[in-house]
Design a protein around this nucleic acid. Structure first.
Lengths: 355, 355
DNA sequence: TGTAAGCACTCACTAGAGTGGAGTGCCAGA
DNA sequence: TCTGGCACTCCACTCTAGTGAGTGCTTACA
């Protein structure tokens, strides 16, 4: 009889949630095997697993118990078992210790961030590709929100006879622009004048707090430009509510499922930025790191699992990493990759962000 | 015997490329039928098509001739015919007259562009979604290149102790940014000073023509900032070579093919921006509007057809629209949608672009 | 010479029967 | 409580017609 604190690898099996040591070991073996093979796992395949020192007959009776308790399911009477969402949940919660990426993956991540250059947006974009490569899942990267940023610079640039651009630089390094049409022919001095007034009005404020009447400059043309510019700022603030999303490696979903329908519906979801961002937000808000099957409540993703990892910079949340794959995805790999990439990305963002 | 100038609908059949009127009508019927059903088309299904007033036996002998000439193929001896790439090519070149979108589609496009607002990038992004909706294909939209644009404004904005942002506004309304690290603690007057010198150096020049030594300002700190800023401009110019690409509706590829492998390889291509942009470029350069099957030379896309449509603003090329779907895509629909959306988009870009 | 009608043939697709094997549940015994 | 044995289940596979949509060919006719 195996002792309760028997260990193998980095995993420890304890009596939790109604499952004794051996049942946990069997569940562990079934999940691991099924993640690799995608085939129902029979009792014979499990007897050699560590922690299971009993015959297949005993394994069978344990498996029957695990099925009664909802951890395993049988596609049909004479088939092996596959894990249920509850089974995966137990696996993730109790059988997956904190593990690191293998050395190859670690090196890949390090090389990536050593070579990372360019602006934040393109780095986030390429990070989604890196994550997809590492985990063979589709990867989502949500950029930092600009909520708490204030206007560091605002400028009016004339582009043509009747066109000007309002360019705003926020304190977190984000740059936003919006074009405005000018009714009259405005010369550069008027624009410069309006630019100065606009700066006086907006500098140091959060984008969402700008609005209201601007102090009149005394010049009719300047005032007209000014009000158009402020309207542009308000539009910017409205459109800025949602964070930027980068999705990479969605082609991996095609390899993960054999039903084309499933692939299609998952891809359709991934194309909807708002849905994805709020989905990740919801999962984090419920305190989860992994949402399995129906747990996230998005029906077309019922056969998917989602791993989320908030990116923090100096303790503040500065974005999110998400991985999406089939429920039989490689959780240890996905979790460790998300953790390491998240840490590194946070580090990089900290360097690139002022204060 | 049908006369040579017999017409139906908007299509006219003429004797071209070895195909007499009836063979062309049969080919037309086979392609149209196959595009709809994705099933091999037998001689019986064709006898009722307009322009084919003969028995199925005669159709069979014509089909055999079309097969000999490479326009049709047979999956196996006792199956109907499916079009070859050459068959689609003939269909597109000779049997697809210039047609318009149906009224529903036209209205959808008009509504879209009436409601279009915001900046160019987001409009291009949403345009890719519109095209995908209209055609049920994956859509690619390549934004205007900034090749001929000159620097209209350049500015240095301090972000923190050791961080500043170089913000460039180009004459076509594009805004680019690049962060630079400052070794010493630089105060705002130094930044402003450097900003002025930088403007003197860069204004009016194309981004790619900036470089070389800047006139020394006499202040050591200012010069240090200046050289870092110029280096940033050079980096910008280098990274700016490739145009922006927006891909929408890639989930449609999952519905178009039944082989998951094909879906995967097509999606993998669509994820590679450089490949897609140069692919569209190549097709346009060879003078094609539609590239069918192997014509574009990208092996994983051998079962795809690509429709391209350059967007022109005042005669100059200002981007590209691309549609990708299976070779049995609805060519008339794709062509008319691309044409109409391309026109409207060009119109919009003209309004939003100075001069 | 071009078209139509008839006929034999091909071959994917389907349904049904048979078989092997992987898997199960149950039970008696250590 | 565990094990070995046993009967049972049912999927996956193969094999065998049978069916039908489709063909090519040959002959007859205007």
């Amino acid at each position: 009889m195996p002792s309760v604190d028997e260990r193998w690898g980095e995993k420890s099996l304890e009596v939790v949630d109604d499952l004794d040591t051996r049942k946990a070991a069997i569940l562990n073996a079934v999940v691991t095997e099924y993640i690799g093979s995608a085939q129902p796992v029979g009792s014979q395949h499990v007897v050699d697993a560590p922690g299971v020192n009993v015959s297949s007959a005993t394994v069978r009776s344990d498996m029957a118990a695990l099925e009664r308790d909802g951890y395993l399911a049988q596609p049909h009477t004479s088939a092996g078992r596959i894990p249920t969402d509850k089974g995966y949940r137990f696996f993730v919660d109790h059988l997956t210790g904190p593990s690191d990426l293998d050395s190859g993956g670690r090196q890949q991540v390090r090389q990536f961030f050593d070579a990372a250059h360019g602006e934040i947006e393109s780095m986030l974009e390429r990070t989604s590709g890196l994550l997809a490569d590492l985990t063979d899942c589709a990867a989502m990267v949500v950029g930092p929100s600009h909520e708490s940023a204030v206007v560091r610079s605002v400028q009016l640039v004339g582009l043509g006879q009747h066109l000007a651009l309002v360019v705003v630089v926020l304190s977190d390094g984000a740059v936003q622009k919006h074009s405005i049409e000018l009714s009259d022919d405005i010369d550069d001095t008027v624009l410069a004048d309006a630019s100065t007034h606009l700066a006086a009005h907006a500098l140091g404020k959060a984008l969402t707090h700008i609005g209201g009447p601007v102090n009149p400059s005394g010049d009719k043309q300047v005032d007209a430009v000014l009000s158009a510019a402020v309207a542009a700022l308000v539009t910017m603030a409205a459109g800025d509510g949602s964070e930027q999303l980068f999705v990479g490696g969605s082609s991996r979903m095609a390899a993960a499922f054999d039903a084309v329908d499933t692939v299609r519906s998952v891809l359709t979801i991934l194309e909807q930025q708002l849905v994805v961002v709020s989905l990740l937000r919801d999962i984090i808000d419920t305190g989860l790191t992994v949402a399995i099957g129906a747990e996230h409540g998005v029906e077309p993703l019922a056969s998917c699992a989602i791993v989320v990892m908030p990116i923090s910079v100096d303790g503040a949340e500065a974005g999110t990493i998400g991985l999406i794959g089939p429920t039989r995805m490689n959780y240890p790999l996905a979790l460790s990759a998300a953790r390491m990439v998240g840490d590194q990305l946070g580090e990089r963002l900290r360097e690139a962000t002022p204060r």
